[in-house]
């Protein structure tokens, strides 16, 4: 068995491992790096439970090799909160009851985060299309949409705030 060395910046921290070329990125994260917030729900790139960001783009980490991500910046659910302070999406999912069993939630939050980076003020249709690669079996999506809407509002307000203070001074 040949292995290759990979060096990935995960949630801002450089992590390294010697891996088989066939190792899936999701297994690198979960098993080599112990970041078990990223889940596996299918084998066919349908469910999105494994969604992470690679170089700023949302990706299904079960459909990417660890070696493909060598040198990349990866962000996972564990990197979303700032210490005790939840990311607005995490807060939104909690406030709006946007999760039940919680298994799809990390992938759903990561995809939503990418969506809001692309489109800070999405319509309900745009939100639903934006998470169409993430399956949830518990919630019927209603409260997930509300959670994303709440977070979008907070993120826009946070974006607007510094500008307002500059104007004021």
């Amino acid at each position: 068995m040949t292995t290759q060395h990979v060096k990935v910046t995960v949630n801002g921290e450089v992590r390294e491992a010697d891996v088989e070329p066939r190792l899936l990125l999701v297994h690198l994260l979960r098993e080599n790096f112990g970041l078990t917030g990223t889940h596996v729900g299918c084998d066919t790139s349908n469910c999105g439970a494994c969604t992470v960001h690679v170089n700023g783009m949302s990706a299904k980490s079960c459909t990417m090799l660890a070696v493909q991500a060598d040198g990349a910046e990866v962000k996972t659910i564990e990197g979303m909160a700032n210490g005790a302070a939840l990311h607005p999406l995490q807060q939104g999912f909690w406030d709006q009851h946007g999760l039940q069993c919680g298994f799809c939630t990390p992938g759903m939050i990561m995809q939503s985060a990418w969506l809001l980076e692309q489109n800070p003020d999405p319509s309900e249709d745009e939100i639903r299309l934006g998470i169409s690669g993430n399956l949830c079996r518990c919630t019927g999506y209603v409260n997930i949409v509300k959670a994303i809407q709440q977070a979008a509002g907070e993120l826009r307000a946070a974006d607007a705030a510094p500008v307002a203070s500059v104007t004021a001074s």
């Binding site: 790139s45 999105g48 969604t51 783009m57 949302s58 990706a59 299904k60 459909t63 990417m64 995809q111 990418w114 969506l115 299309l129 934006g130 998470i131 169409s132 690669g133 993430n134």
Partner: peptide, 9 residues
């Protein structure tokens, strides 16, 4: 084609 993640990659 596919979904947003698939279109990203």
């Amino acid at each position: 084609i596919g979904d947003p993640q698939i279109r990203n990659w």
